[in-house]
Design a protein around this nucleic acid. Structure first.
Lengths: 354, 354
DNA sequence: CTGTTAGCGCATTCAC
DNA sequence: GTGAATGCGCTAACAG
């Protein structure tokens, strides 16, 4: 039987209230008494039963997610997954709320963070914009006692408690490696379609891609990055122009959003072009099936949301997280290992995690 | 505030004990009374707080895992992950035990299942052997009220509550698709190294591989399956013979264990052979880095163990599982997206195994 | 058949 | 500074 507060109270010769005070680091205990209790905790190997503690406290965890507005399908999928997780709130004692702010707008993000913190939530999950003022706002949140995780896009300089997302350099390297192998000996340049080089994860993906493709394979020209602003129309136009300019174009790596435009552009081409894209959506899924896209690298929004919730609760309670469980995987989808589309899928399918 | 038992007791005009009786489907309640209570539960939207219930019951979940003996590194990794999960037992109220039985020995497995069931555990996780008597034993367990999940290798005919593992047909298809693309136009036959065709997951992988490779690519000869019994020595020998017999061998798909032997054999070859294998171990990892293996398909044993525990607890409590969370992924590793080696990783003794 | 009561392990008033 | 008492939501004797 696990030791309880009663056991350590008896063992230390004090009352439950005193034990509770030292457990929760509250004042009103003499140093000697405290040490006696801590000794008892140590020798009995006491670990507090969080379930019972939460029951007694009627604890709920108000958690705030701050994500970009706009029609980026991945972000909307993320929002949908937050809503799904919200269905379980009564069970896991959370209360989830979502704040949306214009994408890439650090001022708006800072304001949202400060506003969220003023309600002293149990935790904050932020899709970070890579800017110093954002880092400062996150630091403020933390020093106000609010645990913060960055979501999808990291900002290590902020001192956030945890990053929930994939290793984007590794993702880029994987894309580069797949591209190199898929192309085999076939000549011709490779194009890269990004959203914006102002975004950290896009920069990292490009970096990894370039490194892997130039390191492990025969020399190949990587054309200047096409910045499609994650906008399907613009992406389509840029890709079409690029195809015209390079009649021997061998491959395209799309590392951001706006893939519906990309697909339209390449399906108009009569020649085979190897294409690797990010995020499984209804568009990339059907393009994959049709053979227009060869591989899709993916991060599971559902897993990310659940992971953020678990981590924030753990941080709020000051307990350790299961690292292995919180590692977000880079999923690689070919037409042959597509997960089934599920009834609950909003528009961005899948969901599986740990 | 969520409604509690008090609320429904008041609303139904009965006592707590009666509410508890209908909640737990215990006898001693008149049909009319029961219906009143159920109506109250329905209208108030009551959901029982499992944490509080478990606290009151001092509930623990004795869970039994039955896995093969032998030096199959994946199985040993699985066992290690069970031990890791056991560290958290005090926290999540489980008590894990492991029974090992000789691999592919259905009689031994049946006996182990029956023995485990006689202790009436809260749940049973079994690496199933594909045999009718095993299915019968699992069915017995379930009708004795013990929830059963199959682990890694399924046995749908048994009526198990859930399967914890990857979709092996999809895994095979993925391997076939990758093999086809990696080979490009290069001619030459492809070999398949399996453990045994008596095992269901191996059969399924082969089936998927053959289908994908012959369906989506130019015709290619797939040689007769080499059955290496998951034994490194035998695998090495078989592969060496195969290489000698087929000087134009283009690729090898290793869908079982015994990969250290495979690696030894192919590293002795002077010519490039595309290799796709299963399960990331120290051997496959270093072969991947060295370029001897091109891709590794992987299932995360840690995830599988945690998933089995979550599912069995849920089944024991009669509550729903988060399906998305319990789907086990097929991880695809290239040298570029290898996860960092961790303390808990599978480590095999040098020389004699996979 | 149904209700009362006393905990499960912990947190929190309120006295002393 | 410290302790006794009460309750969180639920279960389990034990009465009636």
């Amino acid at each position: 039987m696990r030791p309880t507060v009663h056991d350590i109270a008896a063992s230390a010769g004090v009352s439950l209230a005193t034990v509770d005070r030292v457990l929760n680091r509250r004042p009103g205990v003499r140093a000697v008494t405290r040490e006696k209790v801590e000794a008892a905790i140590e020798t009995l190997g006491y670990v507090r039963d969080m379930a019972a503690a939460n029951l007694a406290k009627s604890r709920v965890y108000p958690l705030v997610f701050i994500i970009p507005t706009g029609d980026n399908p991945f972000m909307r999928g993320l929002e949908a997954e937050i809503a799904v997780a919200g269905l379980r709130s009564p069970v896991d004692r959370t209360r989830l709320s979502v704040l949306t702010v214009p994408a890439f707008d650090s001022a708006a993000l800072v304001e949202a963070i400060d506003r969220a913190v003023s309600d002293v939530p149990a935790g904050l999950a932020v899709v970070a914009v890579d800017a110093p003022e954002v880092a400062a706002a996150i630091a403020r949140a933390r020093s106000a006692g609010v645990p913060v995780v960055t979501l999808v896009s990291d900002l290590a300089a902020s001192g956030r408690d945890h990053f929930v997302g994939i290793d984007n350099i590794a993702a880029g390297r994987t894309a580069g490696s797949l591209m190199g192998r898929f192309l085999g000996g076939r000549p011709g340049p490779v194009a890269v379609l990004a959203g914006s080089m102002l975004v950290r994860d896009h920069r990292e993906r490009l970096q990894g891609f370039t490194a892997a493709l130039s390191q492990d394979f025969e020399p190949r020209v990587i054309l200047d990055v096409l910045e499609g602003q994650d906008d399907p129309m613009l992406a389509e136009e840029l890709v079409a122009i690029c195809c015209k300019a390079h009649s021997d174009l061998a491959g395209i790596y799309s590392l951001g959003a706006g893939n519906s435009g990309l697909v339209t552009a390449i399906s108009a081409q009569g020649r085979p072009i190897r294409v690797i894209a990010h995020e499984l959506t209804s568009h990339t899924r059907s393009a994959l099936k049709a053979g227009l896209i060869d591989a899709v690298l993916h991060q599971d929004a559902g897993h990310e949301v659940r992971s953020a919730i678990r981590v924030l609760k753990a941080k709020a309670d000051g307990v350790a997280v299961i690292e292995a469980q919180e590692r977000i995987r880079i999923d690689i989808f070919l037409k042959d290992n597509l997960p089934l589309e599920q009834a609950g899928d909003v528009r961005e399918p899948i969901g599986r995690d740990d």
